[in-house]
Every structure is written in C-alpha cells, then in structure tokens.
Design a protein around this nucleic acid. Structure first.
Length: 471
RNA sequence: GCUCCGAUAGUGUAGUCCGGCCAAGCAUACCGGCCUUUCAAGCCGGCGACCCGGGUCCAAAUCCCGGUCGGAGCACCA
C-alpha cells in the first residue's frame, strides 16, 4: 500500500488543539474510527492537545458503559487523548454563557408549542416571545434551569436570521427541558443544552484551533458560528469530510442495543457487529484503521468503505505472524489404505521458518479428515494430494495411498486434511454462520490470528476451541 | 420541497486551491506469467478513469456557466 499523506491544515501557527466528540450512547464502531484517527494524526503531526469530549447532554440517550468503553476503544486504536471532558459536568458553564447571550439580546425564552414554533420559523416569522426584554428572558431562564417548567413547554432560542434560506438555521433551539434522570448527574439539572450550543461553548473554552468532523455537521457549523459571532470568539478552522457508507455490517447503536436487550446479539462484541470491540475480537489491527483512514483522506466526497482494501491492509500486517493450520470444515473421515507408514511435517509459516514445523506420525492405514466440499468433487480413480503428506487415489469405497511424488503438484488437486486425533473446532463468521469441523491437534499452542489453509484468517480463542473469522 | 455539498478506472484514492512537469500516479480487485506442496504471501507484466455540454485560454481533470447524477441536513438527537 502506498503511503498516503494527509493534506496540511491551514491556519496552523504552532501547536494545534483538537477534539473528538462522541456521544456516550455506546462503544465506538468502524465509522467513528475515522474521526478519531484523523484528529489524532494531525495532533501528532503538529503537536498539541487532543481532547475527548463526551457529549452527554441528552440524558435520554446515554449508556453508562460508554464512559469507559469509548476511552478503551481509543486506547486500542492508539489514539492519544490528552484530556477527557465530560459535558454534563460543565452545565454551569453553559448556563453562564447562555445568560450572557440573553443579556446581549441574542437569546430568548420561547414558550410556544413545538409545532407552533416550527411553523413561525417555516414562514420566517418571529414568535411572540422573540422580543421579550433581556430581564424577562433572564427571569424565565432562571425558572427554566431551576425546574420551573415542565418538558416541552419552554425552550431557550438563539436568535439568528429569520430570513435565512435554511429554515433549520433560523432561530435554533439552544436549551430544552429534560425530565429523564441523567446517569451521571441524576436529577440535578432540568434544562440541558442542545448540541449546537454546548459544542460552540466548549470549542471556545477548549480553545480549539481546528475541528475535523463529518460533513453531516455542515449546517451545525453554520448554526454554531452565530454563537461565536455574538460572543466575539475566534472560530476554529473547520474541516468536513465526506460520509462513508460501510456496507455489510451493523453499526447503528440503537439497533445494537435493542438486539442486545432482546438476545439477538451476545453483546457489544457480537461477531456480526461493526464495533471496534468486535473487530478487535476478529483480529483486526489498529494500524489497519490508521492506514485506511489516512489513505482515504479528508475530502468532502461521500464514499463507500472498501472491505477489500481494508482487509488487504490488515492481511499485510498480520500475515507474517499468522501460523498456518489445518482446519477441515464439514469433515469426511477416511482411511488411507495401502499399509504405508505415513508421516507429515509442514512449516507453521512457509515464509518464516523461525516459527517452526508441525509434525505428525500417522502410522499405517491412518484415519484422516478432509472437507466434504472437496470430497464431493473428487471422482473415483482420481489422484489428488493431501497437502504435505502424500498423494492418494479415490477408490470405490474410500482412498488408497498412491505415491509421494512432488513432480505434478501443479496439475493435481491439493487438499488440506487433519489427523484422526484432531479436535472439534468452531469458526464463527461475521454473517452469523458457524463452520464446524476438525482442527489439527497442535493448534493448541497457537495464539492469535492464524491462517487456516485454503480457508481464511481466523483469530483463535484458545480457551474455547472457537475461532472468529477475520477475512 | 428547501438548504448545502460533491462528481478521477469495479473499489479506495493522488492531482483540483496557485491551469502547462497529467496522452493522469498509487493501492486494491481482476487477467496472464514466475515462484510456491494453500483458493495465503511474494515477484513480473497487463486491463482499466478525469459525469455531460458549453465558455475562457496558446494551454483545462484543474477556472467559469448550464445540465445530469449522487449524497447530506431540514428545526426540543449528537
């Protein structure tokens, strides 16, 4: 893989200060890894600080485990976080800044019903509360944050431009009342900031120089810029990368959570999911994520995630250490007739002799296993090779030893096999399928990712006679 | 519908800001060959792209306009 290099950031005057801002709804998945890697790459390039800011201002959408799972995921990804900031611990800051905005006449308290307010905006009209005095707004805001309003009856709104072509940017909501218990702060707060408000305030307080995020935030950037403008704050440089569609895996936290609850999935690292936990379990390496996302760059084009390329990067990393093993899915048991004493010796890695060999003395007329799938295509009287063992001929009833010539290896079908003392082994695949079969006895000394010959790379869990299919 | 963004081979990208070194580089996939006791890895070779139409210019993948297609956002999620 060619070494790609991310473009330089503009406006760098020394060290940079950047952030990762996930919401704690669950652990990170492949999609999240992009923003983490991209930000980390730049902080490494220029030096500076990378903040992990946990955006937990919506108590309805928080998973307590995420508070530790996210930092763990990042650590695994080798993303260096310098400081963790939790938004729910900064509520007083948001309140303080909101009051400033109110005093300046840039924020008001609206008591319209939701659909009514929406309708005003749609028609570029001011709602009846828009021109209240700062004093009245301040009173209402105090009442709001001290629990004097119930959910849905009130909101704090940032004044923007009622004639803005994008209706969502016209007078956007900055605070609303939430009655759910917050997993961290409990019932302490009644009014929570909306993402666009807390993000603007924190990006300023953290003195960020650059913000890199997905282009789904394009209109958020515009909303947030009003706060920067009213406060006279200096804006960071923004970059928005295109959206990536990641095919063939399950990423949506809400779906995963539901699946875990109803027993569809075994947990956050269920083999079918696209969480980092799952990918780690399957044997993907953190360097793979880094290389892939750096190669993908930062352009605003939407793209399709390529498992093909991702896997190829990963293969390059893991192959040198991946021991070759014989795994026989759906085994057929056969006796090699002919009365010949048979012995097999094969390297754990043909390109890396240092990893040693595995040797089996089979004796004469041994029983072995071969894949049913291969057996089905072998004709009677056909001669084929058991890899690293000998050539055999299919007879009317089974197989018979033929010879051990290496002369026509290119012409003859070569099949993997495993000796009669093999263990039962299961491979769980990302599509939910499970292959059961036999694995050669010496697998027990092998840890981590190995290559099952003619099958694929598998991450072995030595405790359980189970492997997780990698690619 | 409205607002915004984008468009380079099957896929992922480099180049686009500051037009010429791009008859377009790389990776992956695919095809062929070599090597190899794997449908793994490696080596060599090959196939394959600037969305369309105008304009500016000596010169356009690169700048401008129009179109087409794709994507995102759309208001008490982050």
């Amino acid at each position: 893989m060619q070494e790609h290099r991310l473009p330089d950031l503009s406006g760098v005057t020394g060290e940079v200060r950047m952030r990762l801002a996930p919401s704690p709804s669950g652990p990170l998945h492949v999609g999240h890894s992009r923003m983490a890697i991209l930000n980390d790459e730049y902080v490494r390039r220029y030096g500076g600080k990378l903040f992990l800011r946990i955006e937990d201002t919506n108590p309805a959408n928080i998973d307590l485990d995420a508070y530790h799972l996210i930092p763990e995921d990042l650590e695994w990804l080798e993303v260096k976080v310098h400081e963790i900031v939790v938004q729910s611990k900064r509520m007083s800051v948001y309140y303080k800044e909101a009051k400033k905005l109110i005093e300046r006449g840039s924020m008001y308290i609206c008591e319209c019903d939701q659909p009514v307010f929406k309708n005003y905006k749609l028609h570029s009209e001011a709602c009846p509360h828009r021109d209240r005095s700062p004093e009245e707004n301040l009173d209402k805001f105090e009442k709001m944050i001290s629990g004097g309003f119930s959910k849905g009856t009130v909101s704090a709104v940032v004044k923007t431009d009622l004639n803005h072509p994008n209706p969502s940017i016209r007078d956007w909501i900055a605070f609303r009342v939430k009655e759910e218990t917050h997993p961290l702060t409990g019932k302490t707060y009644f009014a929570y900031p909306m993402m666009n408000f807390s993000v603007a305030v924190d990006d300023h307080y953290l003195d960020l120089t650059h913000v890199i995020r997905g282009k789904d935030n394009l209109s958020n950037t515009e909303k947030q810029s009003y706060v920067f403008q009213y406060m006279g704050w200096k804006k960071p440089h923004y970059y928005h990368y295109g959206l990536v569609h990641i095919p063939g895996t399950i990423l949506k936290t809400s779906i995963i959570k539901k699946g875990i609850r109803d027993g569809t999935y075994s947990g956050w690292s269920d083999i079918r999911l696209g969480t980092l936990l799952t990918m780690k379990r399957r044997g993907y390496r953190p360097e793979t994520f880094r290389k892939y996302w750096v190669a993908s760059g930062m352009r605003e084009i939407d793209s399709e995630f390529s498992w093909e390329i991702f896997n190829s990067i990963n293969r390059e990393i893991i192959d040198p250490g991946a021991r070759r093993l014989w795994f026989v899915p759906n085994p057929v048991q056969l006796k090699i007739e002919g009365g010949i004493d048979l012995k097999s010796s094969a390297p754990f890695h043909p390109g890396n002799p240092a990893l040693g060999d595995r040797t089996y003395n089979l004796g004469s007329d041994p029983d072995i296993f071969i894949p049913e799938k291969d057996w089905a295509y072998i004709q009677e009287n056909e001669r084929f090779r058991l890899k690293d063992l000998c050539n055999v001929i299919r007879t009317h009833t089974g197989i018979r030893y033929s010879d051990n010539s290496h002369d026509d290896l290119k012409k003859v079908k070569i099949v993997q096999w495993s000796p009669s003392g093999s263990s039962d082994f299961k491979v769980e695949k990302p599509d939910g399928a499970v292959d059961t079969g036999k694995i050669e006895p010496l697998f027990s000394g092998v840890k981590g990712v190995s290559q099952f010959e003619r099958y694929g790379y598998v991450n072995i869990d030595p405790e359980k006679n189970v492997g997780y299919f990698l690619h």
